[in-house]
Nucleic acid binder design. Structure first.
Lengths: 214, 214
DNA sequence: GTCTATAGACGGATAGAC
DNA sequence: GTCTATCCGTCTATAGAC
């Protein structure tokens, strides 16, 4: 990460560096999507930019740093998407519709780029784990998602875990068995209804208990 | 796979071969569990048996063949487990209890060996895909599971997909975020109840429609 | 900053002696 | 069947000229 400007670097030079860093990440995303995340190598990234592999070390200190940058990039994109989706919903949209839209957007996000999905949500790169900074980005996203769930009426920690499991399951099955189709994503409404019915019936039970009804 | 006996091989020699093959797979499972599935190498397997790497080629034609054998082995173990669990249930066990037991057994199976979970259920090995034979083993298991679901009353293909998604989600979250705990597996009852409540309410709707009630 | 050259490690797989 | 020796490929990363 830390590519701190040296004393002698002009703003112009810095901007050029940032631009090149951006190009490197762009190429990396494209190559990962084309040839698979596991096949991503520094040589390949460099070649796609008509560079030699060692030159990348002027911009990132290691391959792990590039993966971290991609990881953070991916989570930022997801965060942006979920924020956009959320902002586009009318204020009094039902909880049901909110959940459906969030889930639909999330699955769409995963299907849009299999390599990105594998980088962000599965441990697909042997020998690499997100750095603490990168992990923080994923945590921030999780917490953002929790506030959106809270708006939709889901606040019980157990319900949140339930909800993440339902979402993860839909996404995982979709990506593993029908990456370009909708065999599982078209079950989104079912899942949301099922989930809300469940939490509602539990709430009713709790209400009965408070009232002392057997 | 095909290690067909040659004309001159005695039964004794064949038994010895089978035994060694078995030892190779055993060591591979142990090493995968210890050092991670991705780190599994022929050199390492051979060393753990005090052999040299090339000697493995007398027993398996390639590393992919070893992975295939492990894959089939793993699915056979799962099949055995689910059969055992199923047989242990009294004949008139409720659908709810049946689903709970199957799901509990499955998650336990995954938690018992993270490497095996990754081999069977995620695409964790770069450049390897199960051979058609190996894939057939996983399909057989899926169909076995479907018949068990049918016994528990789940026959609608959409419900089966829903059910696999729920299961996959619980397992994935459990393995990724709490591999040795029960943060998600203790939601099994919730998930099963939720699922049954959902299918039941849909059945009620269908009944009303058949009766012509609005 | 970018290059060439290369270190140094790992991997799967093969040839051929014994 | 098992070995030694080796081929050939992959990769990240570094040294040092320019």
């Amino acid at each position: 990460m830390s590519t701190a400007p040296t004393r002698s670097s002009s703003a112009r030079v810095e901007a050029r560096r940032a631009q090149t860093r951006h190009e490197i990440l762009d190429s990396a995303w494209r190559l990962a999507a084309d040839s698979g995340l596991e096949a991503l190598s520094l040589r390949e990234i460099a070649a796609s930019l008509s560079m030699q592999a060692p030159s990348l070390y002027s911009y990132f200190p290691s391959k792990a740093a590039i993966l971290d940058a991609l990881f953070i990039d991916g989570y930022r994109a997801l965060d942006d998407l979920l924020t956009t989706v959320d902002d586009a919903l009318p204020a009094r949209t039902s909880a049901r519709q909110r959940l459906i839209e969030i889930l639909r957007a999330w699955i769409g996000f995963c299907q849009a780029d299999q390599a990105r999905y594998r980088l962000l949500f599965t441990n697909a790169v042997p020998g690499w784990q997100p750095s603490p900074d990168a992990y923080a980005a994923s945590l921030a996203n999780y917490q953002h998602l929790c506030t959106q769930l809270a708006i939709a009426g889901v606040t019980d920690p157990d319900d949140i875990d339930l909800c993440t499991a339902l979402s993860a399951g839909l996404v995982a099955q979709q990506m593993a068995n029908d990456p370009d189709g909708d065999r599982w994503s078209r079950r989104i409404e079912d899942v949301v209804d099922m989930f809300l019915q469940h939490t509602a019936s539990r709430a009713r039970r709790a209400t009965r208990l408070r009232k002392g009804t057997p």
